[in-house]
Design a binder for these strands. Structure first.
Lengths: 221, 221
DNA sequence: GCCGCCCGTTCAGGCCAGTGTCAGGTAAGA
DNA sequence: TCTTACCTGACACTGGCCTGAACGGGCGGC
């Protein structure tokens, strides 16, 4: 598993990192919400360990933004406070579990293992592409947190672009995704679908390469 | 896979080289940034293992230059330091993963295998020609890291030169790339396209051989 | 069945980037 | 010097591309 640890206390951070690492998981340790934000946008994690009191804000804000974007990565909150109200607020904000400091490292291991067990096998791969967040497993897309509904044909086309951001797909390659291999099509169906995808995913999501085809724009729009 | 190992410590370098080699990958081992630079310009790698502290500079500089050129080859950083700030800086500079020394060779294998898995299937061939970086599959070109857009006709011409850098192409050979074989053309279309290519790819990218034709300049401009 | 809705497809009109041509200027060679 | 080959800015035209709209089939609800 790949775990993101968001924790600004040096000693505790090291201890947690070492423990998780010893349990056989890859750990990325960041010490502020800003870095956490960058990390989740560039990497896909199976678990996030989130401290609440951080130098540049409250963990809840990060968590809410994460969920608002449609990111369902499990989150375990680490906090010194054992206020019942805080626990409720945390779970309401979208946390999956809770650890109250000081906690035993073996308890940490147990909770992480629980998440690992729950998500083993098929953690739906989430892909960030610019402003888009794509769940390859159940064909769900959100644009800046707003869920986007694609029809079957639209998804079939869009999926082709996901193989690698920026990949160039020719018209015939796109047609092969919609129809029998090699089917000749003379109408402008592809153009119409590209147009509809742009309307749903953002005008700049797909770039036209005149005379050659189309490519997904991998940068923020 | 073809792996470039940039590491100046003899013992570690040998160990890593042997391990990767044992895993069934081809390894090129260089011990300085200068050699690394030459290597990536002449060969296309699937993975680069990059030490940070090197005799002739810091690995980050190499990494940044690589990315600035538009080269997306996956890079795993090897370093003795386990500073979070370094890891963040590394990932920000464009690294894909991180290994902190001393690391277990089995962990190295695992990370390399992960990269192999992630990138299997669609390694578009990248070609370096002087300051140009060309992605043959996606028809993408960057000049000193700046992406360059070519039209269909421009690409068709340029592609001819790529088959062998430095090869001399006559006017009629170039015409055959744009039109039906043998089509007679009396205007100066070729000259115009050469001019347009030069404007986009650099004045010295294409050399005129008076009375004979043109050839691509394979050296830095 | 009949209706309503959604999706896939086609069509038509408008727009604009790409293309090819020319003309005047520049560089190379004798 | 002159001649020839090459360079390049400018411009009109064309065909590729975009998209609103309409058509028709499939499917579920009643």
């Amino acid at each position: 598993m790949r775990v993101l640890l968001v924790e600004d206390t040096t000693g505790l951070g090291e201890a947690v990192r070492d423990q998780i690492s010893e349990d056989g998981h890859a750990v990325d340790w960041v010490q502020s919400l800003a870095f956490a934000d960058t990390s989740v946008k560039t990497t896909t994690y199976n678990l996030i360990l989130l401290d609440l009191m951080l130098p540049d804000g409250h963990g809840f804000d990060f968590l809410k933004k994460l969920r608002a974007r449609g990111d369902a990565t499990p989150v375990i909150i680490l906090t010194a406070r054992d206020q019942v109200s805080d626990r409720i607020a945390g779970l309401n904000a979208g946390a999956d579990d809770y650890l109250v400091k000081p906690f035993d490292l073996s308890e940490l291991s147990a909770r992480v293992a629980a998440v690992a067990r729950r998500y083993r096998g098929n953690p739906n791969p989430l892909v960030h592409i610019g402003d888009l967040l794509v769940d390859l497993g159940d064909h769900r897309i959100s644009l800046n947190g707003q869920p986007v509904e694609l029809t079957a044909r639209e998804w079939a086309l869009f999926e082709g672009f996901l193989q690698r951001p920026g990949i160039l797909l020719s018209r015939s390659q796109l047609e092969d995704r919609l129809y029998e291999f090699g089917a000749e099509i003379e109408s402008n169906t592809i153009e119409v679908y590209i147009s509809r995808l742009r309307k749903k995913l953002g005008r700049d999501a797909i770039v036209t390469v005149r005379g050659m085809g189309y490519r997904l724009n991998s940068y923020d729009h």
